[in-house]
Amino acid sequence: MEQGTIKMEHGSGGKLSKALMEEVILPAYGNPVLNEMHDGASVSTAGNKVAFTTDSYVVKPLFFAGGNIGKLAVCGTVNDLAMTGSVPRYLSVGMILEEGFPIADLRRIVETMCQTAKEAGVMIVTGDTKVVNKGAGDGIYINTAGIGDIIEGTNISPKRVQPGQDVILSGYIGDHATAIMAGRHELVLPTSIQSDCAPLNGLVKEMLTAVPQIAVLRDPTRGGVAATLNEIAEQSGTGILLEEDTIPVRPEVDAVCEILGFDPLYLANEGKLLAFVDAKYSGKLLEIMHKHEFGKDARIIGKVTADAVGQVGMRTSIGGIRIVDMPIGGQIPRIC
């Protein structure tokens, strides 16, 4: 790595995260499964196809409008499993607690985890707890890992993305990041802005049952829709062209972005998914999604192109075309 120390941007899901993976992690223990770089791994154990994933949660503040770190930790792993085309089954929970952390807060967090796990139909079957000295952590960090059963007949892989396919987004973007930013800076926002944090496995199961031909599913978390689509464009060797007019952003989120200088395309979501599917199945898929609580605002936001391989572009509302680049690090606010 060019710079000798870890910077915050290495953890943001953008270019530097990717560089860290490619230059430090993959050379050490890369293998055909890991090299796929999907949200979760598809592996076989005793002849069964299983999805396996892990994720760590260090969100600040711990409690925010629409959820808390516990809900995030369950949903995040459940969603990563769902995006692999599986039915999530079992989770592990590892917690690192900081000395002095209020037990009442911990209780709130684990109760939420229990409730969210129930909602998602998964069992938390193993776990671990460690305590570090005061000052060595931020209250609580949580790691969850999970396994799920791959749904028969599905084959989720960026390699199946083809020019002409539609890009479908399940709903409004940027809600989670906006709720977190508001919490962090004590901005008073309308109650309509809440984290979208939700388990998407129910929606995914219905989507895959109706249209098993779905090529790729991905939840646009860190780095937002922009980072996720750039990854897919690169992994699939295709281009993606978005239509600005079709991308659903709440006016309140737009307003906060305006103030803080953010672009909603780069904001994290915790209850949204992107699906790539042959255009002939789009109608059927949207119909299924619209019936579901977490997919009712789904729509086609763009197309896969043979042009501009590895790049994501956008036709703007006034008819210009521009690139939607991979984010480098976290977004920083403008100062004038």
């Binding site: 281009g239 192109t305 501009a308 790049q311 572009g313 521009r322």
Partner: peptide
């Protein structure tokens, strides 16, 4: 925003 880079 891709000036000189975007190939679409």
């Amino acid at each position: 925003y891709g000036s000189g880079r975007y190939q679409y």
